[in-house]
């Protein structure tokens, strides 16, 4: 545990450095490679913590499969993490239906990770429906980013 905490602190420092310098691609990728392996920052930047869905769909697409394959490999390697998979929707649906759809999306990602060998006991789900947009926006690009399942590490 102590080691993980040290890594997380380091990851945080790297992120801060990357933000405060500039957003130049080369520098950003240089920062990415310096994230401590096995840290939350490593998972987010080098593995990818989220997959995206088509409108009103909960099936994992090709890009999502690649991301979840990387997540599964990483989670099997760093077996001390628990994961809560958060399902989200864009704002173009009703509140209650979107809670159900977000749950369905989170469960899709969970089932996929289990199929790749991540123990089910490490994977919880929660739906936020359309209540926690990221990014906040009302155009096609924002909606596409909001139809997501995010693997949050604990």
């Amino acid at each position: 545990m102590r080691m993980i905490k040290a890594w997380m602190a380091m990851a945080a420092m790297v992120v801060v450095a990357a933000c405060s310098s500039n957003t130049n691609d080369q520098q950003a990728s240089a920062a990415t490679t310096s994230v401590a392996p096995g840290s939350v920052g490593d998972f987010r930047q080098n593995v990818g913590d989220r997959v995206f869905f088509d409108t009103d769909m909960s099936t994992i697409n090709d890009e999502g499969r690649q991301t979840l394959n990387r997540q599964a490999e990483w989670l099997k390697k760093y077996s001390n993490y628990q994961v809560t998979i958060e399902g989200h929707c864009d704002e173009r649906g009703t509140r209650e239906y979107n809670l159900a759809l977000g749950e369905r999306r989170a469960n899709s990602a969970r089932q996929y990770l289990i199929a790749q060998g991540v123990p089910a006991a490490r994977l919880k789900t929660i739906s936020y429906g359309k209540e926690r947009p990221d990014p906040v926006g009302s155009d096609e690009a924002a909606w596409a980013r909001n139809r997501r399942a995010v693997s949050a590490l604990q």
Partner: peptide, 9 residues
């Protein structure tokens, strides 16, 4: 009410 289990409501 709705109750969800294994992703289904």
């Amino acid at each position: 009410m709705s109750i969800s289990a294994d992703g289904n409501s």
